[in-house]
Design a protein around this nucleic acid. Sequence first.
DNA 1: GTCTATAACTTGATAGAC
DNA 2: GTCTATCAAGTTATAGAC
Lengths: 214, 214
Amino acid sequence: MTDTKQRILDTAECLFAENGFAATSLRAIIAKAGVNLAAIHYHFHSKEALLEAVILRRAAPANQERMKLLDRCEQDAGNQPPSIEKVIEAFVAPAFRQARDPALGGPVFRHLTGRLYAEGDMMPRIIATHFRPVLERFATAIRRALPEMPPEELMWRVHFATGVVAQALRGTRAMEMFGVLHEASNSELVLDRLVTFLSAGFRAPVMKKVAQRG
Amino acid sequence: MTDTKQRILDTAECLFAENGFAATSLRAIIAKAGVNLAAIHYHFHSKEALLEAVILRRAAPANQERMKLLDRCEQDAGNQPPSIEKVIEAFVAPAFRQARDPALGGPVFRHLTGRLYAEGDMMPRIIATHFRPVLERFATAIRRALPEMPPEELMWRVHFATGVVAQALRGTRAMEMFGVLHEASNSELVLDRLVTFLSAGFRAPVMKKVAQRG
DNA sequence: GTCTATAACTTGATAGAC
DNA sequence: GTCTATCAAGTTATAGAC
């Protein structure tokens, strides 16, 4: 990959994560990257295709790792389904591992992922294309880990959990707003905290009011 | 309030919720509202001031109701702090109540709130101005409801919970992506599900690994 | 592959008639 | 209060020289 192309990808990743897709102009990217405007259209075709390239570069390996981790969980568990803790960790860990590796852009892409998850409907095509297979596989694993849970209830919990993951990935700037000191958000501890919080939510007994209606 | 002004507010609310702030042009608003471009600049001063007006119109009464509900919880509980369930419900219920009232714009503003929560850092000034007092009051209530929880851990759980609330408010379009049938998201049941999920997350025992480090 | 130049269009904002 | 007309700047994208 040429140096120019890579610098464009890096800079775009950074600015999309920082300001969002719509609010980031190509000219802001070329200014920070020190490249020519036409170079973007040469290497990528359009602004949207650039975003897709940015996503794919990091999401593809992360999603492969997610699948591999889930494979291993299911092997280790033998005939039984893996616990909800293991499934959640398999899904979230790759993003944190990536964030700790400067060669993979450090925490920048994690922020971008968080933003994309959170905006969600803003770029449904891209999300659906590159995340759907992984998400469906994990949805199945979650169903198997909690076979007693009514499907409708489980769907809602997955929905809620998506919000947690997005928030956790996006980082802690929201917390800083309140002037709270806190540990680095790529700490291993955050992953543990996340798994604890989510697993408890998933395992919570179904409310009677809800269960009666189905 | 003039009819024009109100139509601008309604339409802007709708489009900001649908497409985000940056991606919504003033001309898209005037087209859908059937008003003149200059009218926006006459009634509001700028695009950003329009957003703030949109937010304030709904957030102010909702936040007042949040405070009132929390007051009542604390009265009912006497000397003891109210349970985490009650605190969470006091915070979230007004948004759902508002969403069920067509006179208050129905679910539209709830979607917008969810988006603002989720984008978070995108409009920190507005969020900080209009939500900070409420959030600080509720943070205190949560601390009192869970006095055993180490403050650092609690901060993270509040951070995670913010993501859940944002996701729940934003609605279910992310779920629809997977073709799942589901009940209406302004159902009373969703509120119960949300409270159940979040309370369980908050009450989860602190992991040993985390507790050791503080 | 990289550049300049520019087309073609959209944006937020304003001036001034009515 | 509401309109038309317009500004100045910024946008994505392209054509064509090198």
